Simulated scan of single mutants.
Amino acid sequence: MLTRERQTLIRSRLDAHGRVVAAELSVEFEVSEDTIRRDLRELAAAGLCERVYGGALLRTPPVPLGLRLDVRLEAKRTLGRMTASLLEEGSVVFIDAGSTNLEVARAIAPGLRLTVVTNGPVIAAALIDRPHTEVIMVGGRMNADLGACVDAQALTEIGRLNIDAYVIGACGIDPAAGLMAQSFEEGSIKRAIAARSGAILAPVTTEKFTVRAPFAVSDITDDSTLIVEADAPEAALSRMRAQGARIVACRGDAG
């Protein structure tokens, strides 16, 4: 098989599954793992994938918030309800912008006393009818694609906060790379929030395990609680448990 033919097939595997494993491709194509790694390096150099330990992930461009709100809505609602059930009475919670996090905000019980800080106007709007929830907006210029304030003013205000729990909207997740963001500004904001937080709650749809975003946000540690769907990849979850993370799996209606 010619190199170009093999790389075309590898691209088709990436498109279909979101990730490839070098050892499996080596067996399938009857070539050495070094040959597969060379193929993956060339595909990554062409911007077609992101190399990770043992294989590669499909490179996924960022999608504006407005286009994500109705995608896999029932799965996000299930994750949102489970995440909201983990919030503790009287705590200070930062909920950043994101379509899954919007469902977390919507699922907060009306009687739960919380202080919610957010840089996302849609998150604040979702909590407007919660009589026992104090909502604090982090200001600055809003990025329309992200649906969030991610500028210098937002960073300054975040630096003055003491946060009990951070509900993070993750663009990608990986045992080695941790939680990731798609843009430089978003990554900077998320890192600043994580640094001011006692714990991180990450509701993650299964496809996020196949996304290799370019900007690191936070490692997976014993401060991390990952709220995942029933079909989340067990190999990745096992590694994250070994890193100290708590895994909360949603069952039944998460599809």
Rank of each mutant, 00 (worst) to 15 (best):
I123A: 12
G90F: 02
P62S: 01
G120F: 09
A23L: 13
A124H: 04
E88Y: 00
A56Q: 01
V21A: 08
T115A: 06
A107S: 15
D145S: 12
T83S: 03
L58I: 14
D39R: 01
D96I: 09
T60M: 13
V135T: 05
M82L: 10
A105L: 12
P64W: 07
L112W: 07
L69P: 05
A144N: 00
A97Q: 06
R68L: 14
L43N: 10
G98Y: 02
E50R: 13
M137A: 13
A45Y: 11
K76M: 03
F94K: 06
T118Q: 07
G66T: 08
R113D: 13
V71E: 13
L102E: 04
R37C: 09
L114M: 07
V52D: 05
L114T: 05
D34I: 11
I108Y: 03
P131N: 04
L114I: 11
E33D: 14
P131W: 01
V92L: 08
I108R: 05
R41Q: 13
T133L: 05
L58T: 07
V63W: 00
G120M: 11
L114N: 06
E50W: 00
P110T: 08
V27Q: 13
A23R: 15
G120I: 10
E134S: 12
L25Q: 15
R130F: 07
D96E: 13
I128N: 09
L73Y: 15
E88C: 09
A148H: 09
S32I: 11
I36G: 01
T133C: 15
L86V: 06
G120K: 10
D70C: 09
V135D: 01
I36R: 02
L86P: 07
L43W: 09
E134N: 11
L25T: 13
S99K: 03
E50F: 00
R59L: 14
I128Y: 01
E42Y: 04
D70S: 15
T83C: 01
D129V: 12
R59M: 07
M82Q: 12
L57M: 13
V92Y: 02
E103H: 10
N101T: 13
V52A: 06
L102D: 03
L57V: 03
T115E: 14
V31R: 07
A124S: 10
A152K: 09
G111V: 03
V52T: 14
C149F: 12
T78D: 05
I108G: 07
C49M: 09
L87H: 00
R141G: 12
T78W: 00
A126S: 15
R72M: 05
E103L: 02
L102V: 02
V63M: 06
V27Y: 00
T60C: 08
A126M: 04
K76P: 05
V138F: 06
R41F: 00
I36T: 01
D39Y: 02
M82Y: 02
A84N: 06
T78P: 00
R38V: 07
G55T: 08
P121N: 01
P62N: 04
I128P: 00
P61T: 11
S91N: 10
L69S: 04
L40N: 12
M142H: 06
P131Q: 01
C49I: 05
E24A: 14
